[in-house]
């Protein structure tokens, strides 16, 4: 158990030490270049300063991380729950493919975030408009990838299923669905990246809590150190969401090329 764990840790380290060195170097440069170039702290604080100063406000930061996190997560999950079955329906219905699909493709070109002020003005400062905005920025990549996923089974496998006389349900569960998962996850990943962006911008526009709201307030108060602390929290939030998707992918699609480890 322990030697196995150590070995895994060793492997992980040998894969990522270069990246970690680069990362450490980046923060060291940031830390010391502030002094070298005489950057005033109300413009750009040092990383150590960000940590020590924000510690005083950690309760608020954590609470707002929770707020922004739940907005992102809820909107994202709703987007998945609606987009995947809808993508499936569009892939299999020639009517939907000729109506809703081109509509979605054109709406995909619209910057969804431009609707944010409208939703805030219609629905107020609460949770709901945030979720709708997160939903909007997550929904389209997920649904478009789901359509692609469910409509791109190879001709050979389609024929193979017909030749066995399998019922549609059986062929779907045993062949179409597993074959579609990798492409679905492409959409889930784009969605996960968009979710926190959507939530933050929605909070910029109209809100009385959350990390987006916090960044605006502290920036107005000339406290970039606190703004950076909030940005770190947002980054952690994004990584967490993305990590969850990656984990799910590893569990559900361990056979896919992107998941294989060359041993």
């Amino acid at each position: 158990m322990i030697p196995g764990l150590l070995e895994k840790l060793g492997q992980w380290f040998s894969r990522s030490w270069m990246f970690m060195c680069f990362f450490a170097g980046f923060f060291l440069f940031w830390e010391y270049s502030i002094g070298w170039f005489d950057v005033p702290r109300y413009i750009l604080p040092r990383p150590t300063e960000i940590i020590t100063k924000s510690a005083a406000d950690i309760d608020r930061l954590l609470y707002y991380t929770w707020v922004t996190g739940s907005e992102s997560f809820t909107g994202y999950i709703i987007a998945i729950v609606i987009a995947v079955p809808l993508g499936l329906a569009i892939a299999f219905s020639s009517i939907l493919r000729r109506t809703i699909y081109p509509f979605f493709v054109s709406v995909e070109m619209v910057p969804k975030i431009a609707f944010a002020p409208l939703f805030i003005s219609w629905l107020g400062f609460g949770f709901l408009p945030k979720i709708i905005i997160v939903f909007l920025v997550c929904f389209f990549p997920i649904v478009l990838n789901a359509i692609l996923a469910f409509s791109s089974l190879s001709e050979e496998l389609t024929r193979f299923c017909s030749a066995t006389g399998a019922t549609r349900t059986r062929a779907f569960l045993k062949v179409r669905l597993p074959a579609a998962l990798p492409q679905c996850f492409v959409g889930f990943k784009y969605g996960a990246i968009n979710a926190t962006v959507g939530a933050t911008i929605a909070e910029f526009i109209g809100s009385d809590q959350g990390l987006g709201f916090y960044i605006q307030i502290v920036t107005g108060n000339m406290r970039p150190d606190l703004a950076f602390a909030a940005i770190f929290m947002l980054t952690a939030l994004g990584l967490f969401l993305f990590g969850l998707v990656t984990l799910a992918e590893r569990l559900l699609v361990p056979w896919h090329i992107s998941q294989r480890r060359n041993k």
Partner: peptide, 28 residues
């Protein structure tokens, strides 16, 4: 009938045995 296609009908998420069984499972 039995048909073997020119391009592979092996699915990547199943083992060799699982792929052979897929033919049976699809036929119930």
């Amino acid at each position: 009938i039995g048909i073997m296609f020119q391009d592979s009908t092996l699915v990547p998420w199943r083992t060799v045995r699982g792929n052979i069984e897929l033919q049976l499972e699809l036929r119930n």
